[in-house]
């Protein structure tokens, strides 16, 4: 019985020990790079599908990101992680991320909430 309790407690602990720090760091870094006018490096943090969708014809990803003039992100106010998806709320933005084998990448940024509907994002996939 004691072994069962320990096993269940371990499983619960393992299941509940969600890493919220990693997606928060990626979201902060993404905005820090944009603020520092390093859009090319910021593009390197996007999910592949998002990076492909972002530029218009004849434009680079960095050009498109620069054109959007995303405001400063500010401090992280909350992080939600469910499976391989995460949402990081910053003082000035909401960012959605996906966990790939090489780590968290930005799927959507510059997002504004819309009641009862998906967020309206400047950058998404």
């Amino acid at each position: 019985m004691r072994i069962l309790v320990i096993l269940l407690a371990s499983l619960a602990a393992a299941g509940c020990a969600v890493d919220t720090a990693s997606p928060a760091r990626v979201a902060e870094r993404f905005h820090a790079l944009i603020t520092a006018n390093q859009e090319e490096a910021a593009c390197g943090m996007l999910a592949r599908k998002t990076a492909q969708r972002l530029p218009s014809r004849g434009q680079t990803c960095a050009d498109a990101l620069r054109e959007l003039r995303l405001g400063p992100g500010g401090v992280v106010t909350s992080v939600s992680v469910w499976g391989d998806e995460a949402q990081v709320r910053l003082a000035g933005d909401t960012i959605f991320l996906h966990r790939f084998s090489d780590g968290w990448r930005v799927r959507a940024a510059g997002c504004m909430p819309v009641p009862d509907l998906p967020y309206d994002c400047e950058v998404d996939d």
Binding site: S80, E85, A86
Partner: peptide
Amino acid sequence: QAAYNSERLSDLRDP
């Protein structure tokens, strides 16, 4: 709840 929230985040919605 976990599966639903993962899907909601994937759809750019709040959990």
